[in-house]
Design a protein around this nucleic acid. Structure first.
Lengths: 108, 108
DNA sequence: AGTTAATATTGACGTACGTCAATATAACTG
DNA sequence: CAGTTATATTGACGTACGTCAATATTAACT
């Protein structure tokens, strides 16, 4: 652990590394949008833990391309998983990925 | 709880309200920046649970105005508290505000 | 094959944000 | 009081992001 000389007293560098902060910030950035939060919440509170994308434009009041865009972001980041069944796309939550972010707030 | 008619089956509206999603998203937006995450981490891992702003530009590799800007954002949002002692500004973490965001991830 | 329906992709537009230089404010020091 | 130091504010710049219209893709159904 590296030491840095400051005006007051030495400070430990780094509690979290810059690279780790970058990755965590990327995760929180995905949670930093109300539409994406509502998507996650809708899935989490859905009957079977999964939700059809077809419902979302009406529920969220956003266009189909916008909803699809958010779903893709969440899926590419691993926060959701996508399963195509026929014409429909069903999404589930990846609890582990969400847990990483929650744990980061437990001992920042 | 309102019902909405969709192509598949009725869906409960809303697990979280749009307004609540807006507020939570605002909180996560503050965590969605690596510099701000490192500030929080540095304070959390500091000796007395508080940190002098004077240390941060050197540690974080950002200009003084940039660091001050981030500290102001976090303070105005209630995630940090600021105490001016003489020339120096000392910052602490408001655990409750962070807890709200962590809890939101426990039952999204 | 042709049609319809659900989803994905592309391109464009406006806004929000991180950053720094320059300047202002506030507080200690000689 | 003049000078110095820590912090805050202002203004400007480039980039990233949320959004939608238009289009493409994929799958079901006649």
């Amino acid at each position: 652990m590296e030491l840095i000389q400051t005006c007051c007293e030495p400070v430990l560098v780094e509690p979290i590394a810059a690279a780790e902060a970058e990755e965590l910030a990327g995760g929180f950035k995905l949670l930093a949008d109300p539409i994406r939060l509502r998507i996650i919440s809708l899935i989490a509170n859905s009957a079977n833990g999964e939700l059809c994308a077809c419902d979302l434009p009406a529920v969220l009041g956003r266009s189909q391309p916008t909803v699809s865009h958010h779903l893709s972001l969440l899926t590419e980041a691993g926060l959701l998983s996508r399963e195509k069944r026929g014409k429909w796309a069903w999404f589930r939550i990846d609890a582990d990925r969400l847990g990483v972010l929650r744990d980061a707030l437990s001992s920042p």
